[in-house]
């Protein structure tokens, strides 16, 4: 039994659909006067953030609080982490405080994996973004947003839907998690980027690749623009593209390119946006853009993940329990009362 969510690849199709359906039910909570459910009462969730983040941390915090969990925020600045404490000692501290789950964001790829598997603590570990590796809850909220817009039947995945992920794939943990999850859900993913911004080994991913945005756009049901991660480019000395102007000419989404899209196609961006670089302001604020909705959906999806991982006596998602988690779990009639 897995109790962690470290990679989008941990989720089977059954798991992913269970998260989406659960998120759909939880989304209606936002419209109620009392935005609170009792499912995680008495559980402690620690947000452990070694890297700056606004929306992910706030989103996890809101999700945990709406499920009545106790939330402890722990960020690198202003804690012993900035005094050089090791990940291990931090983990032991959290264990001693009795954390049921640790939501971890780290600049180093693989840090959540180490935290989960090194035997330092018994908590569930949820990866909230590690280096350039993975960000599974972002992929889930993106898939949820697509699913709400493109799929009418809750039993269906995203089969046959075409998703273009455009921009700085190399530095993007969002792209990797999305490629894995969308493949699980049956979508066809095309990564569009200049050759310098495609990761080494991309040919082994379950995706198509293209250097030509204009050729891909008319076929796509979803266009996901990624942020150009200047801070990571600067670390490696830059030189990924000649100028910002040239980049946005070839790989930016502007209103001229938006006009090539099919009527139902949605435009997404995981944020934070560089307006004018990968996406122009008029596109970001257009009717096709579901960027603000992605943030709303993020809370519902993270609630679903926390509930399914922590709500029962064991995790309802991840690995072997996948199929059992979906069908017989629906309580009915006298069976439920027994």
């Amino acid at each position: 039994m897995k109790k962690h969510l470290l990679s989008a690849a941990d989720l089977t199709r059954g798991d992913a659909l269970l998260v989406l359906r659960t998120a759909e039910e939880l989304r209606s909570l936002a419209d109620r006067p009392i935005k609170k459910l009792p499912a995680l009462r008495g559980r402690t969730i620690v947000n452990l953030f070694f890297e700056d983040s606004t929306r992910t941390r706030i989103s996890f915090e809101a999700a945990a609080k709406r499920l009545s969990a106790d939330v402890i925020n722990f960020s690198a600045k202003g804690s012993s982490l900035s005094k050089g404490e090791s990940l291990k000692d931090t983990a032991l501290t959290l264990e001693a405080m009795g954390a049921d789950a640790v939501v971890v964001r780290h600049w180093a790829s693989g840090a959540p994996h180490l935290l989960a598997n090194a035997g330092w603590s018994r908590s569930s570990v949820i990866n909230a973004g590690d280096g350039t590796h993975e960000h599974p809850t972002q992929a889930l909220l993106d898939a949820f947003t697509m699913w709400r817009h493109l799929t009418a039947d809750p039993g269906q995945g995203l089969d046959g839907r075409r998703v273009a992920i455009v921009g700085d794939i190399l530095h993007s943990r969002v792209a990797r998690s999305n490629a894995l999850l969308l493949n699980t859900l049956g979508a066809e993913v095309t990564l569009v980027a200049p050759p310098t911004l495609l990761p080494y080994g991309v040919e082994s991913w379950p995706v198509e690749t293209s250097y030509d945005l204009d050729a891909v756009l008319p076929k796509s049901d979803v266009v996901m623009m990624l942020r150009v991660q200047k801070e990571r480019m600067n670390l490696s000395g830059g030189g990924f593209f000649p100028t910002v102007r040239e980049y946005s000419r070839r790989y930016g989404l502007d209103s001229r390119r938006m006009a090539q899209l099919q009527d139902h196609t949605i435009v997404m961006h995981p944020g934070p946006m560089n307006r004018g670089m990968e996406i122009t302001a008029d596109v970001a604020d257009s009717k096709r853009s579901v960027i603000v909705e992605q943030v709303t959906n993020g809370v519902a999806v993270r609630m679903a993940v926390l509930y399914l991982l922590l709500g029962g006596n064991e995790s309802a998602i991840g690995g072997a329990r996948a199929e059992a988690g979906t069908e017989p779990s629906i309580p009915t009639t006298d069976g439920a009362d027994a």
């Binding site: 939880l26 499912a39 709500g311 029962g312 006596n313 629906i330 309580p331």
Partner: peptide, 20 residues
């Protein structure tokens, strides 16, 4: 849906939510 309010919630894996 009463799933999250059940007194046996913690005794089984988390169950699928049903529509409210």
């Amino acid at each position: 849906d009463t799933t999250m309010y059940r007194d046996d919630l913690r005794m089984k894996p988390a169950r699928a939510l049903l529509p409210t």
